[in-house]
Design a protein around this nucleic acid. Sequence first.
DNA 1: TAGATTGTTAATCGATTAACAATC
DNA 2: TAGATTGTTAATCGATTAACAATC
Lengths: 216, 216
Amino acid sequence: MASRSGYRPPKIPEMTVHRLSVYTRCLLQLEEDGVKTVSSQELAERFDLNSAQVRKDLAYFGEFGVRGIGYYVSGLKAELQKILGLDREWPVALVGFGNLGSALFHYRGFSRQGFRIVAVFDDDPGKATREVDSVPIFPSRDLAREVRARGIQIAILAVPPEAAQTVTDRLVAAGIRALLNFAPARLRVPRDVRLKNVDLSIELETLSFYLAKGSR
Amino acid sequence: MASRSGYRPPKIPEMTVHRLSVYTRCLLQLEEDGVKTVSSQELAERFDLNSAQVRKDLAYFGEFGVRGIGYYVSGLKAELQKILGLDREWPVALVGFGNLGSALFHYRGFSRQGFRIVAVFDDDPGKATREVDSVPIFPSRDLAREVRARGIQIAILAVPPEAAQTVTDRLVAAGIRALLNFAPARLRVPRDVRLKNVDLSIELETLSFYLAKGSR
DNA sequence: TAGATTGTTAATCGATTAACAATC
DNA sequence: TAGATTGTTAATCGATTAACAATC
């Protein structure tokens, strides 16, 4: 493993990265619609943001606009895709092929941005040794081998919470660098592995706060 | 203490509501583990927060602690559940029973906090007229009738993006007050309807930013 | 050139954190 | 009482927004 000491790039706010992703989708749509240029003002209006916010977000990475004109849609799209690493395909491992895993497998949002699920792992004997849509399903003991063989750096975790940490440790040992976790479990990963948790129920709880408040 | 006539409830930051929900889960766990009291410091450490943050979040709603002691776990848990509206059961409609809908139906995080899916809607003729785990499945034309009959205020949306806005309009017309949307679509709802979008792929895109950055 | 819109600096706003008197 | 920890105020930090010279 490479040592990570020394140089640290200027810190980009997480919200900026998030918005970059949002802008990219919008630009994709605008390009499809045949729109050639867009101003920070137009972009901002679509998301209830301030136009200065949009310009500032972009300014972290360079100067992409033209004064008096705005931004060329396909040019900016290409730049943002490059910044976000969406200008390439990422082979992804899907671990867990129950209801949720199956839903995620068929979810079109992933492949639309270049994330390709190239291997599925599940220990149900009825599932392993089979495949879905030409993607092979392996038992989890094959994890390390397949992750290495396929150069997979990203894993999507959709296993029961009890199994989550064990599987995570294996993934990390196999060299996974980023984990999108759907299991309702707190996972521990080394500092150099990126982990994002998707909590399917926490938003529901904040929603009920507002409903309860109304009736208090 | 503010005088009765001049009092205006302070605006609660969304992040505070979010953290309240996080604290509640933690307290649930602590209670199970038989822990009686917890300090803001201990609570904060579990989530890499500052102890003042915890105290400030709680202070929006009242004084729940004891100086020199901390907080009584079950007392605070009960208070937070009340604040979040988790001290009751919420009947919930699940709209869409494909892979994702099915995964959400079986997801235990919802029911654990008192959200009960009491009706499922899907227009697949093979699914309607049937039921899952004693929960009836209706065609979506029955939406208004069932939502009203069951006093449902919250809906979980797991339909294809093309159908999302149509279904949303129906739900709103039927009197739904909060929507948790899993469809990758931008929905328009009246101002008094709460909408939260869960985007299953956006976090993946921010993850790839960090991986791409590493290799830049 | 005149109008439009960028990139950037300075001002503002809001959220986090430090500090500490109150008090169990 | 002595030690611990709250609730709250004041200081700090960071993110958003306004403003505007630069320039297409």
